[in-house]
Amino acid sequence: MSPTEPVRKGAVRKGDAVKSRMAVSMLELIQRQGYAGTGLNAVLEHAGAPKGSLYFHFPGGKEQLGVQAIALAADQFTALIRECLTTDPATELGEAIESAIDALAELMAASDYTLGCPVSVVTLEMGNASEALRTACTDAYDSWAALVEEFLVARKVAPAEAKLLGSAAVSLIEGALIISRARRSPRPLRDAGASLRSLAGAAATPKESR
């Protein structure tokens, strides 16, 4: 008997759910134990997925699953940045930056400093070993820098300066996340936030007023 249309749709939804769970599990395990330390059997067990589903959804194996996990991390951090760095011109510049830093500090403290940015983890481990993973990490960083750039341009910062500061902001925060984990303290993140607040405030000040 041929499957009916509702059954086919249900099967697609179930398959998508399994694929999504595997990406979420891969991301969580990368954060805890790194990319190299994350085995595919551990991902399947964590996701509660059947063994045959891995290469069905990710024919490229671990690398493809890693790329999907990085894309998921990029989306999650993008949502966090968008929530904090609203483009509403009424939001004070320093307040928005402080809000973003507070959110990141709370996430790290809640994990007892065991979780950091999974994109930086993969970059450090696999940046020279996998072009697909390196590209996925680059795309994530670029997307976050673009959001900061958009936020600054909305506050009358010159586009060229906003682009430079967007890149600097991502570099500062990514480095601060690593040092915060090493020190088990939010202080490096707070310091990065204070520096960003100062840089962004100076950029938003008309040149004739400086």
Rank of each mutant, 00 (worst) to 15 (best):
D16L: 04
L172V: 00
E98P: 05
T123E: 15
T4N: 00
Y55V: 06
A140H: 02
D142F: 08
Q33H: 10
A110T: 02
G61K: 10
S53M: 08
R184E: 15
P3N: 14
P3M: 08
L80R: 11
A140V: 02
G127D: 14
T38F: 07
R21H: 01
T135H: 06
A203M: 10
L199R: 07
F58G: 08
A47C: 03
L165D: 09
G15P: 00
G48S: 00
M1F: 01
A146E: 15
T4L: 12
I178G: 05
M22D: 12
T4V: 06
S20R: 09
P89Q: 11
G94I: 05
A194E: 09
T86G: 10
K14M: 03
V12S: 08
I70A: 08
S198A: 01
A168N: 14
N41Q: 13
E208D: 11
E149F: 06
Q31A: 04
A168Q: 15
P89M: 05
A36N: 08
D112P: 06
D102L: 04
D112F: 03
H46E: 15
L152I: 04
L172D: 07
R134Y: 06
L40G: 02
I178Y: 12
L133R: 13
G127R: 15
R13M: 00
E149A: 03
T123W: 15
R32F: 00
A47M: 02
T86A: 06
E5I: 11
S53C: 10
A146Q: 15
R183D: 15
E95P: 00
L199G: 07
H46W: 10
D142H: 03
I178N: 11
V170Y: 05
A79H: 07
A192H: 12
A105S: 14
R183I: 05
A69I: 09
I70W: 03
S2A: 11
L29Q: 08
A69V: 02
D191T: 15
A176F: 01
A194F: 05
L54W: 14
A168K: 15
R134W: 06
E208Y: 12
S143R: 14
G94T: 13
A105Y: 09
